Amino acid sequence: MNFPQIDPVIIEIGPLALRWYGMMYLLGFLMAYLLISHLSHLRAMPLKRDQVADLVFYCVIGVIVGGRLGYVLFYNPAHFLSHPLEIFAVWEGGMSFHGGLLGVVVAAVWFVRSRQLPLLLTADILVMAAAPGLGFGRIGNFINAELWGRVTEVPWGMVFPGAGPLPRHPSQLYQAALEGLVLSVVLYVLHRRQARPGVPFFTFIALYGAFRFLVEFFREPDAHLGLLWGAATMGQLLSLPMILLGAVGVFWCAKRKN
C-alpha cells in the first residue's frame, strides 16, 4: 500500500499555518478538559470549573516542558549538549512521552497540594483525560509520515515517503488504537465501576508500558540510537519500569484499607 498523501497543513494564511499535528494536540487538550469536568462529577471530585481549566493549563505546561527535556536527556543528549539553544526549538519536533508523563506528575502534584485535593483520585482522572490525546497524537504522527514501523510483508504494510521503497508497519496506527482507544475504554470502565482511588492511574501506567513495549517490536528504532543491548529499543527500556510500577501499584491500591 502507498501512503495516503495527506497535506500536513490544514490551512495557511500568510506566514501562519494550521497543521494537522497541532490540531491533534488541540483536540487532545479539549478532550482532556471535557473529560476532567465529566469525571469530577462522576467520581464526586471537588473541582470547580476554574480549577479544571487551571489543572489542564498546568498539565499542558508539564507535557511540553517534561516531554522536551525527556527527549533531550533520553534520546539525544550529546547533540543538545553541543547545540543547547536547540533545546527550545520544540517546533522542530522531538518530544518524549515518558518525559511528558514525569512533567505532568510534577505539575499535578504541585496543583493538588496547593488546592488540597485528593492525590490518587486526581491522578485517576488525569490519566483518563490524557488517553484520548495519546491516540490523537499518534494519528498526527501518521499524517506527518513520521515514526514509521519496520519493514514488513503484511498486506497492510505502507510505503512511507522518506523511508525507502519497502513497505513498513503503520506502527503509529497500532499505537493510536492501543494507547488511545483501548486504554480509554479500560480506564473509563474502571471509573464507571468506581474503582478504588489509584487503580485507574496505576492501570494506565502498566498498560501503557505494556502496549509501548509490544509496539516497539514493529516500530523502527531511532536512527541515532538503534537497538540497545543488542535487541531492545530505548522505548522498551523506559517502558519496563512502568509495567513493574503499574502492576505493584494496582495490587497495593486494591489491597490497602480505605
Rank of each mutant, 00 (worst) to 15 (best):
M1D: 00
N2G: 00
I10M: 13
I10P: 02
I10S: 04
I10Y: 01
E12S: 15
G22Y: 04
Y25Q: 08
L26I: 14
L27F: 13
L27W: 01
L30T: 13
A32S: 13
Y33N: 05
L35C: 08
L39N: 03
S40Y: 04
R43T: 09
A44L: 11
M45H: 15
M45E: 14
L47S: 12
K48W: 00
K48T: 13
V52N: 06
A53P: 09
D54K: 00
V56T: 13
Y58A: 10
I61D: 01
V63P: 10
V65G: 08
G67K: 02
G67S: 11
L69M: 13
L69Q: 08
G70P: 09
Y71M: 09
V72W: 04
L73S: 03
Y75G: 08
P77F: 13
A78W: 05
H79M: 07
H79T: 04
L81S: 09
L85A: 12
V90D: 01
G93A: 10
M95H: 03
S96G: 04
F97P: 05
L101K: 03
L101F: 14
V104K: 06
V106A: 15
A107F: 00
V112P: 08
Q116R: 14
L121S: 15
L121E: 15
T122E: 09
A123I: 03
A123G: 15
A123M: 14
I125M: 14
L126R: 03
A129Q: 02
A129I: 03
A130Q: 06
A131M: 08
G133I: 08
G133L: 06
E146C: 01
W148D: 03
W148V: 14
G149D: 08
E153C: 11
P155I: 11
F160W: 05
F160V: 11
G162Q: 07
L166E: 15
P167Y: 12
R168N: 06
S171Q: 02
Q172L: 10
Q172E: 12
L173K: 12
Q175P: 04
L178D: 00
G180V: 04
L181A: 13
V182M: 11
L183Y: 03
S184Y: 11
L187V: 04
V189D: 13
L190I: 09
H191E: 12
Q194E: 12
P200E: 05
F202E: 00
T203M: 04
F204R: 00
I205M: 05
I205S: 03
A206Y: 02
A206T: 08
A206N: 11
A210C: 10
R212S: 09
R212K: 09
F213K: 04
F213R: 05
L214I: 14
V215A: 00
V215E: 06
V215C: 13
R219S: 06
E220C: 06
P221H: 11
A223K: 10
G226W: 13
G226S: 05
L227A: 13
L228P: 00
W229L: 15
A231C: 01
A231L: 14
A231E: 15
A232F: 15
L237N: 11
L238W: 12
M242Y: 10
M242K: 00
L244C: 09
L245Y: 03
V248G: 02
G249K: 07
V250D: 01
V250P: 04
F251P: 00
A254T: 04
